[in-house]
Design a protein around this nucleic acid. Structure first.
Lengths: 134, 134
DNA sequence: TTCTTTGCAAAATATTTGCACTGGT
DNA sequence: ACCAGTGCAAATATTTTGCAAAGAA
């Protein structure tokens, strides 16, 4: 099955690929539609999933939210309970804990993903702003 | 709003509460229906979410899967790419990394959750069994 | 009796799939 | 010209919600 390089694929990849870019499929659709309004949501999903499978991007999912992350390197995230967005936590990936988890569970571990729940710096700044003005 | 202790609540809580119990809403429905077939799925969802909000259980969600975990203590999990189930990884919760993430992201961190992707011990055993018999 | 909770069915949400058509090669 | 890829709409899967009826307190 030969792989064709379509206009749509290019636009979709461009709309998510990059450091600290986290978008929903719907957001990617909006972005690519600015350039070509004829693009369908199914195409966006199909290609985002394709890129994620290929390892060009990754899909991050949690409790009631999911984003496509333009950085394929494994890294941790902060999920903001205020705005719902995720922020990169540029920690170095620790392979050691994968081996520890293997020993503890008796299984095989491929990778891990840590999600911190909290409030992102932007929402914290906004809240302090609203709270402090005397 | 006063809280009423119904038969349904008791059964639902009993069906998920406990160590190393991870069930989907649908599974909980099957279990409680053995005792009372009249129970509806909406009731199961409503109460599981209620218990999770109260902190009696927790909801764990990942890429295409979600489970209610009968152990409310924060702990890590192994998600099996073969059978789809999750297994507890009884690691001690490390508050230190929450503080580190706060420093790195500039936000506030409430908690974190690590999910390991891999193959659980049961699936590994089954696969070895199928592979080895000469 | 009061008012929370339930069961049902419909609605909402998010994602995937079937299929005829488009367009890359 | 061939067939991977697209757009659309329908299907699917999962969870939530409206509402009349049920049943704790």
């Amino acid at each position: 099955m030969e792989r064709r390089n379509t206009h749509q694929k290019q636009m979709i990849l461009q709309a998510v690929k990059g450091r600290n870019i986290h978008r929903t499929a719907e957001e990617v659709l909006q972005i690519v539609r600015e350039e070509d309004p004829r693009i369908g949501l199914a195409t966006v999903y199909r290609n985002l999933n394709l890129f994620a499978q290929e390892g060009q991007i990754q899909k991050i999912e949690g409790n009631g939210w999911s984003f496509y992350d333009g950085n394929p390197e494994p890294h941790d995230h902060l999920h903001c309970i205020r705005c719902g967005r995720i922020t990169d936590y540029p920690s170095s990936y620790d392979h050691k804990i994968d081996r520890e988890a293997e020993k503890a569970t008796g299984g095989r571990v491929i990778c891990h993903m840590t999600v911190f729940e909290g409030v992102c710096s932007e929402c914290m700044a906004r809240e302090e702003e609203n709270a402090s003005p005397a």
